[in-house]
C-alpha cells in the first residue's frame, strides 16, 4: 500500500502551492484515479508518489515506510524494482525497435535477459502488437505505441503501476485495451494509480482522489 501524509507541494521557482496537507492512501489490489482540472497537480502527485519528485513537506510511505526522504540512488533503485510507469505520450525511444523499447523496462531493475525475452513476447502478444516487435515507434499507430509503453511498464512485473493520462491520446478501442490491462493489474494485487481526465477510465477505478485547482 502507498500512502501520503500531510503532503504539500510548492513550485520552487514560482512559489505557487499546488496542494497542501494532503493525506490519502492507495491500497494494493485497487485502482485509484486522480482526477481534477488541468493544473490541479494530478501529474505532480503521481510523480511524487513515484519518487521522481520530492514534496515540499509531508511524507510518502510505501508499505508503511517513509520513502520520500531517501537518497536519489535508493529512490531510483526502488523505482526500478517496483514501479511500472505509463506516460501520456508513450515516450518510446524512436531510434530503437519496439522489442528494445519494451526490454528497456527491465534494464534498470536487473531483470535477467532470458526473463525479459520471455515476458516481452507474452506481453506484446497479449496487447496485440507482437507482429510489430521489429518496427520502430514511428512505424506504429498511437494506440499501438501506448500498448508498447504498457508492455514496457509491465515487463518487470511491478507491484506499483503509475499511469499519467494513459488514454489521453487514444481512440475508444485502444483506450479499452489500456484500461483492461490496468484493471487486471490491480486485480492481481498491484497498487494502480492513474492521473486522468478520461471519465471512462476514472469510472472503472475503485477509488477516486479529486484535486481542485
Amino acid at each position: 500500500m502507498i500512502s501520503v501524509e500531510e503532503l504539500t507541494f510548492r513550485y520552487k521557482r514560482r512559489g505557487e502551492e499546488l496542494f497542501s496537507g494532503l493525506s490519502f492512501s492507495f491500497p494494493s489490489g485497487e485502482m485509484t484515479a486522480i482526477v481534477g482540472p488541468s493544473g490541479a497537480g494530478k501529474s505532480t502527485l503521481l510523480y511524487i508518489v513515484g519518487l521522481m519528485l520530492s514534496p515540499t513537506s509531508g511524507d510518502v510511505l510505501w508499505d508503511g515506510e517513509i520513502v520520500s526522504t531517501l537518497a536519489d540512488a535508493e529512490r531510483s533503485r526502488l523505482r526500478a524494482a517496483r514501479v511500472g510507469f505509463v506516460f501520456q505520450d508513450a515516450a518510446l525511444d524512436s531510434t530503437r525497435t519496439v522489442a528494445a523499447n519494451v526490454a528497456e523496462g527491465g534494464l534498470y531493475a536487473g531483470v535477467p535477459r532470458s526473463v525479459i525475452t520471455r515476458r516481452r513476447r507474452d506481453l506484446l502478444d497479449r496487447f496485440g502488437v507482437m507482429l510489430r516487435d521489429n518496427h520502430r515507434p514511428g512505424e506504429v499507430s498511437g494506440g499501438q505505441a501506448q500498448r508498447v509503453a504498457l508492455a514496457r511498464a509491465m515487463i518487470k512485473d511491478p507491484d506499483i503501476v503509475l499511469a499519467d493520462e494513459p488514454t489521453g491520446n487514444l481512440d475508444e478501442a485502444a483506450a479499452d485495451v489500456v484500461m483492461e490491462a490496468l484493471a487486471e493489474r490491480a486485480a492481481g494485487g498491484a497498487v494502480v494509480i492513474v492521473a486522468t481526465h478520461d471519465t471512462r477510465l476514472a469510472g472503472i477505478a475503485s477509488r477516486r482522489l479529486e484535486l481542485t485547482s
Binding site: 531510483s76 526500478a80 510507469f85 506516460f87
Partner: peptide, 16 residues
C-alpha cells in the same frame, strides 16, 4: 534530454 528523462523515470540512477 527526453530520452534520459524517460530512463530516469524507468529507474535509471544518476550513475547509470
Amino acid at each position: 534530454k527526453r530520452d534520459f528523462g524517460r530512463r530516469r523515470v524507468l529507474g535509471a540512477s544518476r550513475s547509470a
